[in-house]
Design a protein around this nucleic acid. Structure first.
Length: 836
RNA sequence: GGGAGUAUGGCGGAACUGGUAGACGCGCCGGAUUCAAAAUCCGGUCACUUCGGUGGUGUGGGUUCGAUUCCCUCUACUCCUACCA
C-alpha cells in the first residue's frame, strides 16, 4: 500500500512532543477532580503481545478522554517482575534472573512507547527492585504482628528427581515438567495470610461494587462460598469422643444413617496408627477419583443418634469426604443427598426418607436411585413432621442449641492464602529462625532483605535454601546462630498493592496517606477476566488488611472494573497436522499454501498462542502500519468485552481509514466554497459528536468508531460536493481531530497542528455540543404494526392533523380502502399505527 | 452435577426505556480512472418475487395495536466451577 502519510515520522514527532512537554506527568491538584485509570501491569516476558495492545489501547482511550474532559488523570505503568519464567531463562542462559528481567523490561518499554500511550512514566515501578519489595516485607511483618500471617503445614508438589518443589503450572499430567518424574505430595511448613478473617466483609462489599461486571462478582461470591447450617456433635459409643459435623441440612437429621470421615480426620489418623488395613485403604484412595468411585472403610465404631434413643450409626472413612471443607466429617443422609445415596447402596446402609414432595402421597413416595433434594414436607421426623424445610431447619437448630450438642454455623469455602513459594526469583520473607527455636521477624532497620548475587545460575541455586552463605545469619539481639526463611512470596503479593505505590513510587515509605486519599480508589481498572478471582480478591483483601493496620482508611481498591475479551486468530495446519504461522500462509489459485508450497487448511479461531502458532506480533504491525492503525483496529467492530478476531483485512481497513482521513485533510487545504446553507449538516455532525461521547462513557468504543466513520463520510462527501461553508468545514475539521484523539492520537495531533499550530490537541477540552431540536421528523406509517410508508412531517402537528395527512396518503388510501379502522395509535416522533 | 453468558445478512457487529431490523466496517458485484494492475473514487448488496408485494433476528409458543427487545419451552455453543455436605 502506498501513501503520502508517513506514520513513522508523524508518530515519532508527536511522541517526542508529548514527552518533551511532560504532558502526561501528573501531580496532585486539589482544584481538579481526579481520575485514576489503570491497566493490569504486564509480566516482562520478552515482548508485548496483542492482548497487551488491546488492554492498553482501551485504557488509553479512557485516560485521554477523561483528561480532555478536565479530570486530573493518573495513568501509570510498571512491571510485575518476579516469577518463574525468569528462573527458567536464567537456567538456560546461565544469567541471573535479574538481568534477563531488566533486559525484557527495556525492550517492552520501548514497544509501549511506540504505541503512544498517555502514561506517566516517571512513576514506573518494577516489583523485583528492592525499593519496591522492601515495603511488602514491612507489610508482612506488620501482618505477622497483627496475627494476619501465620505458619502451618501444607502440601507442595515435590519432584523426587530434581529434588525441588514445583509450582502447579510445572506439573503436567501429574509429572514434573523438566524431569518427567511422578510428582509426590510433600508436607512443608509454610506461611499463610488470614484472608478467611475477611470472608464475610469480602462477600458483603461486593454489593457496593456497582461498576464491576456482574460475572466477576458472582465468581468471587462463589469462591468465597458462604453457606449457613449447623455444627452437630456425635458421641462415639466406644470411647465417648465427640465427632463434630457440619451440615447445611440439619433438618434431615432423622434420616441420618451413617457418619463419614475424611482420611485426615484426627480420629482416623489415630486409629490408622494401629490399623494396617485402614492404612492400606487410605493409600489405595490416593489414586481414585471419588467422583467415579466412592469407597468407604468401616472402622467398626458407632455413634449415638442425638435425637433417636438407642439408634446407632456406623462410622466410615470415605474417600469423598473433603478434609479442607467444613470439619472433615459428615453425617450421611442417603435419602436426600446423591453422594450419600450412592455410598449407602454400595454398603447396604439404611435409606430413610424424611422429606417428601409437597403434592405426593406419602404411600407412593419412595427413594430408588435418585436422592430427593427439592423443597418438600418433613416426614418420619417426630417433632419436625409437617414442617417445610426452612421451618424445620430453624426448629432443629433451636433443639440442638437447647441440648447443647451444637450450634448454628456459617461456613466459608474460602481458604487462607498460602504465600510461601520455594523459589529463588521472588521477594524473600523477612523471618529468621534462631537456633533456640525462636521465630523472629527481621528488624525494620535491616530491611530490605535482598536476594543474593549468584553467578552461574543453576538448578542448585534455584532455591534460596541451597545458598548457605545467604541462609546463615545471626540474631541481631542475642548474637545466636540463626538462619533465614528461604521461601519467597507468591507473586500475587506484589500485585496486591502496586496500585498504591504508583501514588509516589520513589518515596522511602510505601506511600503517603494523603496521596492515597487523593488518588484512590482506582476509578477504572482494566484487564483480563482470568484475574477475576485471585488477583482481584487478594487485592481487595490487602486493602482491607492495610486499612486495619492503620495505613489508610480505604475499603475497596477498585471502584470500576472492566474485563476485556481475548485477541483471537484463525489457525492453520498442514497435512502432517502441524500448526502453520499465518505469515507463512499464502493463497495461490484459491488454495492455501505454506512457504514450501504444501497445502494448508484452516482450523478453529482461537486465542493467539505460541503453541497454535496463530500469533501476530504487534511490533511488526506497528512498524509497517503504525500505532494509530493498530489502535484503530483494536477499537473497531468488536465490543471491548468480547473476543476480537485479528484479521489481515481488518488491519488494512484501519490503515485505509487513517490514510483516508489524512487525504481528506490534505485535499481540503484550499477549500473554497460559495456561501451555502449548512446548518443541517453541522447539526448532524454535532449530534454525532455527542453520540461519540456517550459511547465512550459506556465503554462501547466500537460504536464510537462507527459514528466517527459517519462523521468522516459526511465531511468527505461535503468536500467533493461543496456542501459546506469554509467556516463550517474548518470547524468540522477541528472537531474531527478532537474526537479522534483518544483513539488515534498521533494523526489527531497532526490534523490539529494544521488548524492551530500554537496548541496541542491533547490540551483541548472535549466538546459538548448543543443540538437544536428538530422541527421535522420522519414518521413511519404502519397498518397492523407493519410499516407501509414513511413521511416527513412537522413537529407541531396535532394527532388529528397527522391522521388526516396519513389517510390522504395515496399508498395508505389503497391499503385501507374498504376496511374499518378500529384503532389509531400515534407515538409522536416515531410511528402511527392504524389497526384495521 | 452447579453457576453465568451468548445466538441478528457471506463475516465482525448496530437497533436508547417494546415503535422504520441490518447503522458502521469487511467481503462480494457493477462502474470510473489506468496501456494494464495496485491504490483511489462512485453506485449496489437480507431472501424470495408475477415488481403489486411476501417472508425474515437459533426452535416452538405466549403477552401486545406492534416483540431482536418482555414471559415460558426446547436446541446449540462459550466460559467459570466442581464430591463444598
Amino acid at each position: 500500500m502506498s501513501s503520502r502519510y508517513n506514520h513513522k515520522e508523524v508518530e515519532k514527532k508527536w511522541q517526542t512532543v508529548w514527552s518533551d512537554k511532560k504532558i502526561f506527568q501528573t501531580e496532585i491538584d486539589q482544584n481538579k477532580e481526579k481520575f485514576y485509570v489503570l491497566e493490569m501491569f504486564p509480566y516482562p516476558s520478552g515482548k508485548i503481545h496483542m492482548g497487551h495492545v488491546r488492554n492498553y489501547t482501551l485504557g488509553d482511550v479512557v485516560a485521554r478522554y477523561k483528561r480532555m474532559k478536565g479530570y486530573n488523570v493518573l495513568h501509570p505503568m510498571g512491571w510485575d517482575a518476579f516469577g518463574l519464567p525468569a528462573e527458567n531463562a536464567a537456567l538456560t542462559e546461565k544469567k541471573h534472573p535479574e538481568s534477563w528481567t531488566y533486559q525484557n523490561i527495556k525492550t517492552m518499554k520501548n514497544q509501549l512507547l511506540k504505541m503512544g500511550l498517555s502514561l506517566d512514566w516517571t512513576r514506573e515501578i518494577a516489583t523485583c527492585h528492592p525499593d519496591y519489595y522492601k515495603h511488602e516485607q514491612k507489610f508482612f511483618i506488620d501482618m505477622f504482628k497483627a496475627g494476619l500471617a501465620y505458619k502451618k503445614e501444607a502440601e507442595v508438589n515435590w519432584d523426587p528427581i530434581d529434588k525441588t518443589v514445583l509450582a502447579n503450572e510445572q506439573v503436567i499430567d501429574g509429572r514434573g515438567w523438566r524431569s518427567g518424574a511422578v510428582v509426590e505430595k510433600k508436607k512443608l511448613s509454610q506461611w499463610f495470610l488470614k484472608i478467611s478473617k475477611y470472608s464475610d466483609e469480602l462477600l458483603r462489599d461486593l454489593e457496593k461494587l456497582n461498576n464491576w461486571p456482574n460475572k466477576v462478582k458472582i465468581m468471587q461470591s462463589n469462591w468465597i462460598g458462604k453457606s449457613t447450617g449447623a455444627e452437630i456433635d456425635f458421641k462415639v459409643l466406644e470411647n465417648n469422643k465427640k465427632i463434630k459435623v457440619f451440615t447445611t441440612r440439619p433438618d434431615t437429621i432423622f434420616g441420618a444413617t451413617f457418619i463419614a470421615l475424611s482420611s485426615e480426620h484426627e480420629l482416623v489418623v489415630e486409629i490408622s496408627k494401629k490399623n494396617i488395613e485402614l492404612q492400606k485403604f487410605i493409600k489405595s484412595c490416593e489414586r481414585l477419583n471419588p467422583e467415579k468411585t466412592k469407597k468407604g472403610f468401616n472402622i467398626n465404631l458407632f455413634v449415638d443418634h442425638p435425637f433417636i434413643r438407642g439408634k446407632k450409626l456406623p462410622i466410615f472413612v470415605a474417600n469423598f469426604v473433603l478434609k479442607e471443607y467444613g470439619l472433615g466429617a459428615i453425617f450421611g443422609c442417603p435419602a436426600h443427598d446423591q453422594r450419600d445415596l450412592d455410598f449407602a447402596r454400595q454398603y447396604n446402609l439404611e435409606v430413610i426418607p424424611v422429606v417428601k414432595p409437597n403434592n405426593v402421597n406419602l404411600n407412593s413416595f419412595n427413594i430408588n436411585d435418585e436422592a430427593f433434594t427439592d423443597e418438600g414436607i418433613l416426614i418420619n421426623s417426630e417433632f419436625l413432621n409437617g414442617l417445610n424445610i426452612n421451618d424445620a431447619k430453624n426448629k432443629i437448630i433451636d433443639e440442638i442449641e437447647n441440648k447443647k450438642i451444637g450450634k448454628k454455623k456459617v461456613n466459608f469455602k474460602l481458604r487462607d492464602w498460602g504465600i510461601s513459594r520455594q523459589r529463588f526469583w521472588g521477594c524473600p520473607i523477612p523471618i529468621i529462625y534462631r537456633e533456640d527455636g525462636e521465630i523472629l521477624t527481621v528488624e525494620e532497620v535491616d530491611l530490605p532483605i535482598k536476594l543474593p548475587e549468584v553467578e552461574n545460575f543453576s538448578e542448585s541455586s534455584s532455591a534460596l535454601s541451597n545458598i548457605s552463605s545467604w541462609k546463615e545469619t545471626v540474631c541481631p539481639k542475642t548474637g545466636m546462630k540463626a538462619y533465614r526463611e528461604t521461601d519467597t512470596f507468591d507473586t500475587f503479593f506484589e500485585s496486591s498493592w502496586y496500585y498504591f505505590r504508583y501514588c509516589n513510587s520513589r518515596l522511602d515509605k510505601p506511600f503517603e496517606k494523603k496521596d492515597i486519599e487523593y488518588w484512590l480508589p482506582v476509578d477504572q481498572y482494566i484487564g483480563g477476566i482470568e484475574h477475576a478471582i485471585l488477583h482481584l480478591l487478594y487485592s481487595r483483601f490487602f486493602t482491607k488488611a492495610l486499612r486495619d493496620l492503620n495505613y489508610f482508611n480505604l475499603n475497596e481498591p477498585f471502584k470500576g472494573l472492566f474485563t476485556q475479551g481475548m485477541v483471537t486468530h484463525l489457525t492453520y495446519f498442514n497435512k502432517k497436522g502441524e500448526w502453520v504461522e499465518p505469515k507463512d500462509v499464502e493463497k495461490i489459485d484459491g488454495q492455501l499454501k505454506d512457504i514450501n508450497g504444501y497445502d494448508v487448511e484452516t482450523g478453529k479461531i482461537e486465542k493467539m498462542s505460541k503453541s497454535k502458532k496463530n500469533v501476530v506480533d504487534p511490533n511488526d504491525i506497528i512498524n509497517s502500519y503504525g500505532a494509530d492503525t493498530a489502535r484503530w483496529f483494536m477499537l473497531s467492530d468488536s465490543p471491548p468485552e468480547r473476543d476480537l478476531q485479528w484479521t489481515e483485512t481488518g488491519i488494512s481497513a484501519s490503515f485505509k481509514f487513517i490514510n483516508k482521513v489524512y487525504e481528506l485533510v490534505d485535499r481540503s487545504k484550499n477549500y473554497k466554497s460559495a456561501s451555502v446553507e449548512d446548518f443541517d449538516i453541522l447539526d448532524n455532525l454535532k449530534s454525532i459528536i455527542n453520540e461519540v461521547s456517550e459511547n465512550i462513557e459506556s465503554f462501547q468504543f466500537n460504536k464510537s468508531v462507527a459514528k466517527i466513520y459517519e462523521f468522516v463520510n459526511i465531511l468527505s462527501n461535503s468536500l467533493s460536493e461543496k456542501k459546506m461553508s469554509e467556516k463550517g468545514f474548518k470547524w468540522s475539521l477541528g472537531k474531527l481531530s478532537v474526537i479522534l484523539h483518544p483513539f488515534i492520537p498521533h494523526i489527531s495531533e497532526e490534523i490539529w497542528s494544521n488548524i492551530d499550530n500554537s496548541t496541542l490537541c491533547i490540551n483541548q477540552s472535549w466538546p459538548v455540543e448543543e443540538v437544536k431540536k428538530k422541527t421535522k421528523f420522519k414518521l413511519a406509517i404502519q397498518i397492523n404494526g407493519k410499516t407501509k410508508e414513511i413521511i416527513e412531517i412537522d413537529d407541531s402537528l396535532s394527532k388529528q392533523m397527522v391522521l388526516e395527512l396519513v389517510k390522504n396518503n395515496d399508498k395508505i388510501k389503497k391499503n385501507i380502502s374498504g376496511k374499518n379502522i378500529i384503532r389509531e395509535i400515534y407515538v409522536p416522533g416515531k410511528i402511527i399505527n392504524l389497526v384495521v
